[in-house]
């Protein structure tokens, strides 16, 4: 069975994600592709959390945790790109 908080998470993902996709095209942040991939993984994990209450609970639960692992990796790559760019910008290496 599902919890109320999981449904709230899913609803927010469903309604806010399209708006965020539109905004994503406009902003200029180094490594934004990795951050976007991380977000997609987390959102997918939220979906799996709800769905596991109805079908294949063990498999979908495993998948949910795997998506978190991927999301962590992508997030790390995104922050690395951002960190390097910001450092170069500050030290004046960027011309």
């Amino acid at each position: 069975m599902y919890q109320e908080s999981e449904i709230v998470d899913l609803l927010m993902v469903i309604f806010l994600t399209p708006i965020m996709v539109a905004t994503y095209r406009v902003i200029k942040v180094k490594g934004k592709e990795w951050f976007a991939a991380s977000y997609v993984m987390i959102a997918f994990g939220f979906v799996m959390t709800v769905v596991e209450g109805y079908i294949a609970p063990d498999l979908l639960n495993l998948i949910e945790h795997v998506t978190h692992a991927f999301a962590g990796g992508f997030c790390l790559l995104g922050t690395m790109a951002l960190f390097r760019f910001a450092r170069r910008e500050v030290t004046g290496a960027m011309r």
Partner: peptide, 17 residues
């Protein structure tokens, strides 16, 4: 693994100027 990834990301973002 997820915890390690997020922790690393947190440390890097806090170290970002």
């Amino acid at each position: 693994l997820a915890l390690l990834g997020y922790l690393g990301a947190l440390i890097l973002i806090l170290a970002t100027p």
